[in-house]
Simulated assay, not measured.
Amino acid sequence: MTGSKSANEIDAHVGRRIVLRRKNLDMTQAALAAAIGTSNYQLAKYERGMNRVGASRLQEIADALKVHAAWFFADDPMPAFPLQSTSNTDLELRFTSSSQERELNAAFEAISNPPLRAQIIALVSALAAEI
């Protein structure tokens, strides 16, 4: 062990995942900082990968962002152990990255009629195939 406490590639990756999930939830940096009992400045340092996130703090962040702590290591550039596939979570995050996508997703989720939902999927698939 080198004894160095400086941030590294994994710290930066975890920080990017914090930002991604926070933005996906339309949560401000101030709201997340308040939820975990830290300052905006400290949270910004976590998000930029400048400061390492300790295990207990990472769990607090995971709870506030409603994900499992392991989610922050998905697609880790240097995984120490294999994690469960997060492709569905990542696809969901990519799908809900813009306000239009979130609006479409929210409207679709409000439809409780399964046959109608299937028709909408078929319509969107047909439109996408024409492009």
Rank of each mutant, 00 (worst) to 15 (best):
L25Q: 09
K23G: 05
Q59C: 01
S125W: 05
L20A: 05
A70T: 10
T89F: 03
M78D: 14
R48E: 10
N88A: 14
A128T: 08
N40K: 10
I36S: 00
S125Q: 14
S6C: 09
A33L: 00
A12G: 04
M27W: 04
D26N: 10
A126T: 15
L93W: 06
F95M: 13
E47N: 01
G3F: 04
S56M: 13
A7D: 04
A69M: 07
V124K: 10
D11G: 02
I18M: 07
R21K: 07
V124N: 13
M27G: 02
A80R: 08
Q29D: 01
L123C: 13
S98K: 01
I120D: 06
Q100G: 08
F95R: 15
L43Q: 05
Q42P: 11
S99M: 09
A70I: 08
D76G: 03
D90V: 11
M1I: 04
A70Y: 10
G3N: 14
W71V: 02
Q42S: 07
L65D: 03
V53K: 06
L116R: 15
V67C: 03
A35V: 02
L25R: 07
K5A: 13
I120L: 08
A70V: 06
A80P: 10
A62T: 00
A33Q: 02
L65E: 03
L123I: 14
A110F: 01
S4F: 04
D11C: 00
A106T: 07
G54E: 12
G37R: 04
E92F: 11
S112W: 11
N51H: 14
I61R: 00
A30H: 03
D26A: 10
L58I: 01
A35M: 00
G37A: 06
P82T: 11
I18A: 07
Y46V: 07
S97E: 13
Q100N: 09
I120C: 06
A69Y: 02
Y46L: 04
E60I: 01
P115M: 10
L127D: 12
H68T: 11
E92V: 09
R94T: 06
N24Y: 08
L58C: 01
V14A: 07
A12C: 12
V124E: 08
R48M: 12
L20I: 06
S4T: 13
N40G: 14
N51Y: 11
R94H: 09
S39A: 01
D63F: 03
R22G: 06
D90E: 12
A33T: 00
K5H: 08
A33C: 02
R57M: 15
T38D: 12
G15S: 03
F73Q: 05
Q29R: 06
A31L: 01
L93N: 06
T89L: 04
L127C: 13
R22Q: 03
T2Y: 06
A55C: 02
T86A: 14
D63N: 06
T86S: 14
A128F: 13
D76Y: 10
Q119W: 09
A64E: 02
I18R: 07
Q119S: 15
Y41K: 13
R17S: 11
T86Y: 05
A107H: 08
S98T: 12
D76N: 15
R102C: 09
Q100A: 08
I111T: 08
S112D: 12
R48P: 11
A31E: 15
A35G: 02
N113A: 13
G54W: 03
A7F: 02
N113V: 10
